[in-house]
Every structure is written in structure tokens, then in C-alpha cells.
């Protein structure tokens, strides 16, 4: 069943069409990878889904409900959560409080108080392996820890769909494997849809995604199960590069 549906979504910045008539369906409980080069419109697409930008054209449906013009905070209450490419921690408060804010303002908004939110926060910090750092000020974390904290913060919102923005960028292969493992484990336990966006870390895409969407210059150029999409001629041409193909054939 489709959880989120984008129909002809378009966003322009002046003359630049950042996202160009994109149709996309995200299914319940799915692990979807979105890949594309720098400037291909991935982050804009995330911003449109999470409500940071509004669409110029097209519509976005969450379980059939039209959320195209809904403010970002209301989308969060309905179960949309995301992380940011450059982590945006609430720097001056503790890691535990950061994650508790997710719980207080996610789909459980109004249902839980401070104590429960802090408990939920600790639960997810445990899951991403940050529990020992729970009482540190968020700004004191390393970049990788900040990314993990953002994942925990998004999960504590008890979302239906988590959008991860370059959660693995700038990491060494060992850390990538670790974070993919964490995300896959969480997906299994929480039964939520996870969309992960990566620029060029194929290692992460192959190990994580069941399906891959490839973006190029604002357009969706491929949408298929992972292996199929990565072997698509068009994808190889514009994204992986012809050179890779020639090298493969040689």
C-alpha cells in the first residue's frame, strides 16, 4: 500500500527547475534509496516532502490525505520525520533532551509528558549506540555521533516515514557499514518506511535499498529494484558515467 504519493511535483527557483514533474510512490514499510549527483534535486525533493518548501505544481498525498500546502510542523505530527545533510542539533542542550524533543512533537504530540519523552529518547539513543553520551551537550558530539543523534531524534517521533539525508556522507567504509546495519535493524524492528538519500556511496545503497530512484537535473530518470536500476543504461550514462561501463566491458 502506498504511504506517500507525489504527483507531478515541481519546484522552481527563478529560472532553475530544481524538481521537475516528479511522480513518486513510497510504500508502507519500504526501504527506498534516492541517488543522484550533486544538484540533481534530491535535497529539494526532501524539502518539498517535509514542508520546508511548498510545491509550485503538483500534489503530495500522505495516505490519501493531501498535504501539499500543509505547514511542516503538522506534517511532522502526521508521521513525517527527517534528518539533515549537515546535522542540525539543538546544540546547547543535552543529547537526551534533543531526542526527547522528537518524542514530544512527533506523532505522539499531546499524548506524553516530559518523563515519557526522555524515556523514549533514551530507548532510541540505546538503539543507535549513543546511550553513554546521553548527558553530553549536543554540540560536543563528533560529526558521526551528530548524524546518529539525528537518526535517533527522527525515530523518537514515532514516524511513519523517515527521510535520511546523506546519513552516510563523509564516513569511512567501516562507519558506513555500521550505520547501514543500524538502519536496517531499526527498519526491521519498527516497521517504518525509510528513504535514504545518497550522492555516490553505492556500498550503502546496495546494502540498504530494496528499490532505487535515480534523479538527474530535477527529473526522475529511473525507478526500479536496486540492481535493475543500477544496471539501467540511462543511469549508467548520466550518473555512473560511460567510462564505468567501458571499463566493465574492457
Amino acid at each position: 500500500m502506498s504511504l506517500l504519493e507525489l504527483k507531478g511535483v515541481t519546484k522552481r527557483f527563478g529560472g532553475l527547475v530544481a524538481v521537475d514533474h516528479v511522480d513518486l510512490v513510497i510504500n508502507e514499510g519500504e526501504r527506498l534509496g534516492i541517488v543522484g549527483t550533486n544538484g540533481s534535486g534530491k535535497t529539494t525533493l526532501y524539502n518539498l516532502i517535509s514542508g520546508v518548501y511548498t510545491c509550485d505544481e503538483g500534489s503530495i498525498l500522505l495516505e490519501g490525505l493531501d498535504i501539499t500546502n500543509m505547514p511542516a510542523y503538522k506534517r511532522a505530527h502526521l508521521g513525517l520525520a527527517r534528518s539533515f545533510q549537515i546535522p542540525r542539533p539543538f546544540g546547547q542542550i543535552t543529547v537526551r533532551e534533543n531526542v526527547a524533543i522528537g518524542a514530544l512533537f512527533g506523532t505522539l504530540i499531546g499524548e506524553i509528558g516530559e518523563d515519557e519523552a526522555l524515556e523514549i529518547g533514551e530507548y532510541y539513543l540505546e538503539k543507535v549506540g549513543l546511550y553513554p553520551k546521553r548527558n553530553e551537550i549536543a554540540n560536543a558530539l563528533t560529526p558521526i555521533e551528530k548524524k546518529l543523534m539525528e537518526v535517533a531524534r527522527a525515530l523518537s517521533m514515532k514516524p511513519r516515514l523517515v527521510l535520511l539525508d546523506e546519513a552516510m556522507a563523509g564516513m569511512n567504509p567501516k562507519d558506513i557499514d555500521r550505520i547501514v546495519e543500524i538502519i536496517n535493524k531499526i527498519h526491521e524492528e519498527e516497521k517504518i518506511s525509510i528513504v535514504s538519500m545518497v550522492e555516490h556511496i553505492m556500498r550503502a545503497v546496495v546494502n540498504f535499498a530494496e528499490r532505487v530512484v535515480v534523479m538527474n537535473q530535477g527529473k526522475k530518470i529511473a525507478d526500479a529494484p536496486t540492481q535493475e536500476a543500477l544496471n539501467d543504461q540511462k543511469v549508467i550514462d548520466v550518473y555512473l558515467g560511460r567510462f564505468a561501463l567501458e571499463e566493465q566491458n574492457a
Partner: peptide
């Protein structure tokens, strides 16, 4: 110690991130 305060602190630290996380800033 209430949601209001947590929401305010979140928006103090990063207003855009707070909005995306469900705070009616």
C-alpha cells in the same frame, strides 16, 4: 519541564529544524 519549553528551546537552537520536527514555532 513542559512541551512548551522544549519547543521554545528547540526553536531557540534551530528554528527551521524545530519546525520540521513538529514545533509550531
Amino acid at each position: 519541564h513542559t512541551r512548551l519549553g522544549y519547543g521554545l528551546i528547540a526553536l531557540r537552537e534551530d528554528e527551521d529544524a524545530a519546525r520540521v520536527m513538529g514545533v509550531n514555532t
